[in-house]
């Protein structure tokens, strides 16, 4: 099946600084793709290339099989975009923005959505809070019933209730076979709603996998409390000691945990907690290991 987004060997420099270094990425149709990376890794530059605001120095970007920079205005008929920075007009209110978007994109959306996302459409943007501006931007990205949503930090500034509403809208969107590309710092959000994840570091992709593969990596965090002093733990593959003090030991185990459980079972324990590593811990691992 043709991918929704295909980025091949993309390079982009600003002056002497190379921001994207041979970036390769594929986003499948009908998925919510989480695009992760710290500040300066190249996330926004990638999104700007996807939106054809800037052009790569080398490589190619295709969206639904069409080149992003030659079919840009046609592609934008089926792309909804939410930027990280506010691009709204300060003197216009929500209704005026929606009217403008509706006049350009086919597949209009109704004012009712303002009620659903609890935003007053008659207040000028300059008087809206950052969260309400974010909501308005999100509403506008949905105009035209797009096939692909490109969202840069979509829930920034939203309270948890509204975040859930946004997640619900996105999940319904994907059920219809559409695709969502989310750049986010919020790893809980990515873990919760994304089916695929790409991690960018220093201008190239260091991990590109689906969420179930990430979970299958089976990284566990084990916190053990001993009645006595913490014993010496023999080195076994995949085991890392995170912290150790008098009678407490924190371990990270990648892969099968039977080996370490058998070792710990030899000692008197007052408490033992075993947790799955979060996406954040996996993400941090990528950054530590790869750098």
């Amino acid at each position: 099946m043709l991918p929704a987004i295909s980025i091949k060997n993309v390079k982009k420099s600003f002056g002497s600084k190379q921001v994207l270094k041979n970036l390769n990425l594929e986003v499948n149709k009908g998925t919510i793709f989480g695009f992760l990376g710290p500040n300066g890794a190249g996330k926004t530059t990638t999104i700007r290339c996807l939106m054809d605001f800037i052009r790569p120095d080398a490589g190619s970007i295709t969206i639904f099989g069409n080149k992003a920079n030659t079919n840009s205005s046609n592609l934008k008929k089926i792309i909804g975009y939410l930027p990280a920075e506010n691009q709204l007009i300060n003197n216009w209110n929500g209704k005026e923005h929606l009217k403008f978007y509706n006049s350009i994109k086919k597949g209009k959306i109704k004012y009712k959505i303002f009620e659903e996302l609890e935003i007053n459409p008659n207040i000028p943007v300059k008087e809206l809070s950052s969260g309400n501006r974010q909501k308005l931007g999100f509403i506008l990205s949905l105009v035209g019933m797009p096939e692909l949503l490109i969202l840069d930090e979509p829930t920034r500034g939203l309270d948890p209730i509204l975040q859930n509403k946004v997640y619900k809208i996105l999940q319904d969107f994907v059920i219809e076979g559409k695709t969502v590309f989310i750049s986010s710092h919020n790893l809980d959000e990515v873990e919760r709603i994304c089916s695929d994840v790409g991690i960018i570091r220093d201008g190239h992709i260091v991990a590109d996998m689906n969420m179930s593969s990430i979970k299958a990596i089976k990284t566990h965090i084990i916190d053990a409390t001993f009645y006595n002093k913490v014993p010496d733990i023999p080195k076994i593959p995949g085991l890392t000691i995170l912290a150790k003090n008098d009678n407490k030991l924190s371990l990270k185990v990648q892969g099968n945990i039977n080996g370490i459980i058998q070792i710990l079972a030899k000692y008197d324990l007052s408490n033992l907690e075993i947790n799955h590593a979060t996406l954040e811990e996996i993400f941090m691992d990528y950054y530590k290991i790869k750098s």
């Binding site: 939106m51 605001f53 205005s73 934008k76 008929k77 691009q87 709204l88 978007y101 350009i104 994109k105």
Partner: peptide
């Protein structure tokens, strides 16, 4: 101001 981004993100050729 960033408002040109609004136009660029819509299906209007440059």
């Amino acid at each position: 101001k960033g408002t040109l981004g609004m136009l660029l993100s819509l299906p209007i050729p440059r």
